[in-house]
Amino acid sequence: MAIHHQSITFGASLWSLPVRGSHLVGMNTHELGLEPLMGVEELAEYLGVPVQTIYDWRVAGTAPRAFKCGKRLKFAVSDVRSWLETRHEADR
């Protein structure tokens, strides 16, 4: 399999990185100023609910807001955190 290279300039230095899916492995999204995203399956697993529940909540308008990436939904960790906070029970 051929590996194509793309030059990316960061400040004064020039790095040549391979362009293929594996270049994302180990990428530190925080260094790039990007927030971690999770898919529907990951969100469902985190919340302990079936995947269908996430889709049902979206239809009802009660799910955390999401990004559409092609046909996939991605949820920002901060949006999930905010959404959960609105569902926190009041002190008794």
Score class of each variant (00 low, 15 high):
32 L>Q: 08
84 L>S: 10
59 V>K: 14
54 I>F: 01
58 R>E: 07
75 F>N: 00
62 T>E: 15
88 H>C: 12
40 V>K: 07
56 D>W: 05
33 G>H: 05
57 W>N: 05
87 R>W: 08
41 E>C: 03
17 L>E: 06
18 P>M: 12
51 V>I: 12
1 M>I: 07
67 F>A: 13
83 W>A: 04
85 E>D: 12
78 S>G: 09
19 V>P: 02
31 E>Y: 01
72 R>G: 06
56 D>E: 11
60 A>Y: 01
92 R>K: 06
35 E>Y: 01
40 V>G: 01
40 V>H: 03
37 L>V: 13
23 H>A: 09
22 S>T: 10
10 F>L: 13
86 T>P: 07
29 T>N: 02
34 L>K: 03
59 V>W: 08
5 H>V: 10
5 H>W: 14
48 G>D: 05
80 V>G: 01
5 H>Q: 10
21 G>T: 15
87 R>F: 05
85 E>Y: 06
72 R>T: 13
37 L>R: 12
68 K>W: 09
49 V>N: 00
80 V>Y: 00
87 R>I: 02
74 K>C: 12
11 G>T: 07
2 A>Y: 13
24 L>R: 04
58 R>Y: 01
50 P>Y: 05
85 E>I: 03
87 R>N: 01
74 K>W: 11
21 G>M: 15
2 A>S: 14
36 P>H: 04
78 S>L: 07
69 C>H: 12
30 H>L: 11
38 M>A: 02
44 A>Q: 10
21 G>R: 15
61 G>C: 08
61 G>M: 06
87 R>Q: 07
12 A>C: 03
80 V>R: 00
88 H>S: 14
46 Y>F: 05
13 S>V: 13
22 S>E: 13
17 L>S: 08
19 V>G: 04
2 A>E: 15
21 G>I: 14
36 P>W: 01
43 L>S: 08
92 R>C: 11
90 A>R: 05
52 Q>K: 13
78 S>H: 10
18 P>G: 06
44 A>Y: 04
81 R>W: 05
52 Q>P: 06
81 R>E: 13
82 S>L: 04
48 G>I: 04
91 D>Y: 10
82 S>F: 01
59 V>P: 02
60 A>C: 02
69 C>Q: 14
18 P>F: 07
31 E>H: 05
66 A>L: 01
28 N>R: 07
13 S>I: 08
30 H>R: 12
52 Q>R: 15
75 F>K: 00
46 Y>W: 05
6 Q>G: 08
90 A>E: 11
39 G>R: 06
22 S>Y: 06
65 R>C: 06
86 T>C: 09
63 A>C: 04
38 M>Y: 00
45 E>Y: 10
52 Q>N: 14
20 R>T: 04
55 Y>C: 02
31 E>W: 03
16 S>L: 10
89 E>M: 06
49 V>F: 02
79 D>L: 05
33 G>Q: 10
68 K>R: 15
26 G>C: 01
60 A>N: 08
73 L>W: 12
43 L>F: 09
70 G>C: 04
45 E>C: 11
14 L>V: 13
9 T>L: 09
84 L>W: 06
11 G>S: 10
18 P>R: 09
62 T>H: 11
59 V>R: 15
